[in-house]
Design a protein around this nucleic acid. Sequence first.
DNA 1: TTTTTTAATTGAACACTGTTCAATTGTATG
DNA 2: CATACAATTGAACAGTGTTCAATTAAAAAA
Lengths: 202, 202
Amino acid sequence: MARRYDHTRDEIRQMAITAGTLLIETSGFAKFSARRVAKEIGYSVGTLYNVFENYDELILRINAQTLTEIIEKMQKVLLHAQSPQKMLAQVSDLYINFAIDHFNRWSCLYEYRSVHQKVLPDWYLIKVNQLFKIIESILMMGLCKKQENAEQSAKVIWASVHGICQLSLSGRIDIVGRAADKINMLVGNFVDHYTAGLAQNA
Amino acid sequence: MARRYDHTRDEIRQMAITAGTLLIETSGFAKFSARRVAKEIGYSVGTLYNVFENYDELILRINAQTLTEIIEKMQKVLLHAQSPQKMLAQVSDLYINFAIDHFNRWSCLYEYRSVHQKVLPDWYLIKVNQLFKIIESILMMGLCKKQENAEQSAKVIWASVHGICQLSLSGRIDIVGRAADKINMLVGNFVDHYTAGLAQNA
DNA sequence: TTTTTTAATTGAACACTGTTCAATTGTATG
DNA sequence: CATACAATTGAACAGTGTTCAATTAAAAAA
């Protein structure tokens, strides 16, 4: 068939992203493929390639949605102000628990390295930056005075929390007991000492 | 042909690891394949699968050698004692520069997620732990008194340095200027504040 | 020396992958 | 009703990891 007008271009895109998200969530990235997504939404592979530039874009769009979910959760923490240290702990805790609860999707954020583009597209980097901005705004609530310091520390904090999360969940840091507890302990150790150092410097 | 005895099982393994390492180093993981490695060492794919359990093992063996190289470089830092802070900075600097100079091999350490085994094999984890032990021993030179504190902080420090390195080199932290300088600045920020917090606590 | 046994080595075959693009087909216009 | 148009298809291509019957060179036995 052709020009079915059952769905617009954008609708098909959204259907693919939704179906792909579900596929990764349940079966993991290893079982993910363009053909599978196509079958899931009732279109052929060809249609998928009309609507997405390539495989990379499909994955990045799925990842962008995952990021959006994480960011939305984290932004809620900003609503009721507390000490910066407590807010950092809360935000980290959210990230860790998302990574555990949606392990497959979270893995996909970092697992796939594009073959075509060496650099991440702007629309994706905007999402990433939103995450850093959240940390930045928390730091400006007392831990940092200059904006440039907050920017740098936000990068350091986020990279550290992510690093602890990644090495833990990929089994490179031996964690005995409940994963969430153990990772939280390491992140707690980091936040405590790092913010203590920050406060001392300010 | 059969039973050529040109090379022993172990020799073929080593040839494959060496050839695979070179292939990843020069062309990146995307262009890497079992068939390519086989052709490179003058054997068929079948032989590769006689000598390695599967594709995963081949990659992990290559990764283990990459880790060995990194560890050997880092162990040299331990030879001339200095302040723990300076030694941590040196060790981090080594890691960052290895990641930049051998980007493809370094990426491969974290890029590939095994389809077969969920858990990394013991012989690989031993290598990973050697890295943590180096940090631990540095921490025990004054920054930590109890072994258990050193163990936990070593994990935090290593995960943080790695996280900064990964997010930077994957283009998720915008780094203007020379990559090595910018990453070093972030790692410096981390080491300074974290160790200040540690020292304060001790 | 010749035959038999043994095991190292091969490569075609299988089911899959991302990607392309001529052919098809449902819709809208002249 | 014929024509033009574009959305949709799926076979085709070159590649992947993996398997395993068939081949073949070396060692052992006759």
